[in-house]
């Protein structure tokens, strides 16, 4: 099973807090902008939930 991830890019301010929680899913590119992998393995769930918690803009969602 995989987890589908959505980031509301109208809310995202590229703070990168998610990068520390789920580095295999979220990263900042050379321009300090957020990039992410829209599908992750189930084993990433705890990390993704932690990333959701620490997002200052509350812009990260798991798509059901």
């Amino acid at each position: 099973m995989t987890i589908k991830i959505d980031v509301d890019m109208t809310k995202c301010q590229h703070y990168g807090q998610c990068v520390f929680e789920a580095p295999d899913v979220f990263r900042l590119n050379a321009d300090d902008k957020l990039e992410y992998t829209a599908e992750a393995d189930d084993s990433e769930l705890a990390n993704i939930e932690a990333a959701i918690d620490v997002c200052p803009m509350q812009a990260i969602f798991i798509v059901k």
């Binding site: 590229h14 703070y15 990168g16 990068v19 520390f20 900042l28 050379a30 300090d32």
Partner: peptide, 11 residues
């Protein structure tokens, strides 16, 4: 102010 990747590198 800005330069996030640099700031994060110090974390």
């Amino acid at each position: 102010i800005g330069m996030r990747t640099t700031v994060m590198g110090y974390r």
